[in-house]
Design a protein around this nucleic acid. Structure first.
Lengths: 194, 194, 194, 194
DNA sequence: GATGAATGAGGTTTCATTCAT
DNA sequence: TATGAATGAAACCTCATTCAT
């Protein structure tokens, strides 16, 4: 127990520092020294704990995905109907903790670099497949088969697009407004009578 | 006039090489040497023609925006009604020439790096504002004021999301299917009776 | 007494681990961590017991010289005539325990690095002087003064050359054959009638 | 012609600098910076011309082997009888240009590190096989079959041993004396009547 | 007695850029 | 117009060593 305590703490600290530093400087441009400085540690300590910059980045992305997953599961527990659960997915994506410039920014950084780092790509795909299957399941009861996939893709792409645009934002974000907007979009798509 | 002929040719060649090289290797990781090799030239020649790597990147992004603008204007000319023009915007985004993995990939690269390069950010914002004003103008006649901005943002974010996801694609894209999908989404949003 | 028991055991273990690790990786390239791993200990423990990497290397070389000295003295005890004793020197050099790839390899490693480490150089010279004086003493009764030094140097250099070449060997060595060969060479040199 | 002139000159300079620097500091310990300083160039220029430290070392060893080969061929041309040619081999090994502390020292450095660098090992083996076949060919006419291989191995190992010991020398060497000694040893071995 | 934690020093390599030709 | 030549700056990573436990 006590054995791994320090190790876990440092992991946590360094991953948090990575998130901040990548947001500030950009994924491929940020240096070990900058990340270490952000964590108040030495660059060498990153290699001590993670082995390489690449592995640190992978661990950081894993953390991001965990945060997203937790936000969703948290809201899922309370949702009763398919419609509630669909809104839970939306609310998770635009929750106060996740829909921040820093989160969206670093999300975009990892996303953009996934095609050049197999480990990141793998994580990206696993995550996307997971969200897709959730959304698809809920839409089953809400949309006619003919439009189901169209609505699903529209909804997911919409959320992606919002996040990525948020990464470019100069001023701080408004999560509650974003949730309202997203719910509106979802309802528009569901209410369509075509 | 004849004086600048060669200059223009080299500009063109180097920008095309940059697009290919950035797609292959990633924006922040691609080197002058790789770009030069792609163009069959020397790294020094890039500085001769563009002054610096940064300026080359800026010129390349400008080219991407020009392509997009041209695709839109081209289709705009033939469109008569607001609905036709909205579809023109969609068709431009998913035209055979623009909706390719290479284009989407490099688009995402520039997008992701815009926050760290003022010149890119500026171009990114100008472009976004331009598209926004076009779409908004067409929706004026198609959507009730209450939902107008929601629909507009949904549509634009959807298109962004599709492009960015396309950048992760392993297999080649299907532009005509993408156009149909996007039209379906637009029509769903327009047809909503809420 | 009991106090130093553990200390002695650890010394022995770490020196043996050093011999193996240097053979595997090369003198100047082997790391404390590799040596420690070979001994099933931590890198920090090496410093605890030896003070520094340099001191460990010195202790290891001392051990090698002790092994060689013991092999010689062992055979010297049984030798009666000068010729017997000369053969004892040869047999010691190519004994089953010493004439192995690992021994020759590590020997060469220390030899090659002696010029850059005063402590190693000193040990190397002491050892060489000792062997030289032994061989010279025995040759006194076996070779005419005119050729004595030539034969001595020929013999010693021959043995060095064989060891060093053995360090490059891909397959395992044949000590008994090496002894026969060395005896043949010695006898050729002694039998010369020029 | 003119095109590769500079390249060839730099290659030559950097290899010479490598020889000097390796002699001074040791193969595995010498740094790019030290080598570059020795050549009056920058460390980066080594990578520019050789690609890596490893490749520079390989090129340097190749140069050493070429020097040895040339020294032998030079003397071979004038030699008429088998005995003359055997002496030519000896004289080449201990020629004024090759039998210097620097040459012997760097020779030992490369030899000692060959087991850990496949490229060096290959060169080492090729060279050794070449010398072996030369010596064996000349001994054919000079030594009875029974002792032929023994004499050959004795002679080669002797020369190796002398070189390697010379690498430890504190004072400068005496090539002409070394040639006389080596000839004496060779003649002792040839004159043996056993 | 023994070792995880932590790091400063230093090595190789990469790369955008300058410059002479 | 075009490019080899050359390099300073800086990045990642390694490693011997120190120290608290």
């Amino acid at each position: 127990m006590g054995r791994t305590r320090i190790r876990d703490i440092r992991h946590e600290e360094l991953i948090n520092a990575t998130i901040t530093a990548v947001h500030k400087r950009g994924y491929a441009v940020v240096t070990m020294a900058e990340i270490a400085a952000e964590a108040g540690a030495s660059a060498a300590s990153i290699n001590y704990y993670f082995g390489s910059k690449e592995k640190l980045m992978e661990a950081t992305m894993r953390r991001l995905l965990t945060l997203l997953k937790e936000a969703m599961l948290e809201r899922y527990a309370e949702a009763k109907t398919p419609h509630d659960r669909l809104m839970a997915v939306i609310d998770a994506n635009f929750s106060d903790r996740l829909y921040t410039i820093e989160q969206c920014s670093i999300w975009m950084q990892f996303w953009a670099n996934a095609p050049y780092a197999p480990a990141l790509q793998r994580l990206h795909r696993i995550n996307r497949a997971r969200v897709t299957s959730h959304v698809r399941a809920e839409l089953h009861a809400l949309v006619a088969p003919k439009h189901r996939e169209t609505v699903r893709e529209a909804l997911q792409s919409y959320m992606d697009g919002i996040w990525l645009e948020a990464a470019q934002s100069a001023t701080s974000l408004n999560p509650s407004q974003a949730r309202r907007d997203a719910r509106d979009v979802a309802n528009l798509l569901l209410a369509s009578k075509t």
